[in-house]
């Protein structure tokens, strides 16, 4: 019954293939998000000097959220700004570790509406790295960004939200399992 053996091995390979495809969905999804701006995933710093600055004014709302029981104080100095497209802007964010133990945090950005995400270029951002703070330590870090002049005309306002996650435990767990 070699034909049966052939069918079975083909189907078995298909099963393994689909299992791997499930994992391949993770990077595929990221690519998909970047193209469509799904979920306001923000890409890294991709910025070149804009020649045609334009004089469109865009209102930007800045929100900060602490995830779950993250006890740090985390805030931006302004909650909104009106900025011109193509111009470099700066906004300071304050992080304070209010606990009595050292902690590591990660800020996760999100832009809404999602299709505006790819026009929101951050040239310097604390979200590119993790923050390590000693007990009671406080730091102020600037966010530098430019709004792409190609931002679609129907978007007159963008919101940039940061959520601060406590990743101290996750890092410890990861190191332990490695």
């Amino acid at each position: 019954m070699s034909s049966i053996r052939k069918s079975v091995s083909k189907l078995f390979l298909a099963t393994v293939g689909m299992f791997l495809f499930g994992f391949a969905l993770v990077p595929l999804y990221d690519v998909f998000c970047e193209i469509t701006g799904l979920n306001g995933k923000v890409t890294g710093p991709t910025f070149s000097e804009y020649e045609n600055v334009g004089n469109r004014e865009i209102k930007i709302i800045f929100t900060t959220t602490n995830n779950d029981d993250m006890p740090w104080v985390f805030d931006s100095l302004k909650s909104q700004m009106r900025v011109k497209t193509g111009e470099q802007n700066l906004l300071n964010y304050v992080f304070t570790n209010t606990t009595n133990k050292p902690m590591i945090a990660q800020a996760i950005p999100s832009v809404s509406p999602g299709k505006g995400a790819q026009y929101f270029h951050k040239t310097e951002c604390f979200c590119f790295e993790q923050q390590f703070l000693e007990p009671g330590e406080s730091i102020t870090i600037p966010l530098k960004f430019v709004i792409d002049p190609d931002l679609p005309k129907d978007i007159s306002s963008l919101a940039l939200g940061y959520t601060l996650f406590d990743i101290t435990k996750d890092l410890v767990q990861k190191q332990a399992s490695n």
Partner: peptide
């Protein structure tokens, strides 16, 4: 996606809502 006159940040918590008037 027009600009809003008033922006309100709504945060869902287990099991309550938080409202923050951005302006």
């Amino acid at each position: 996606d027009e600009e809003g006159d008033i922006n309100i940040l709504i945060t869902g918590h287990q099991w309550k809502w938080q409202y923050e008037y951005m302006e």
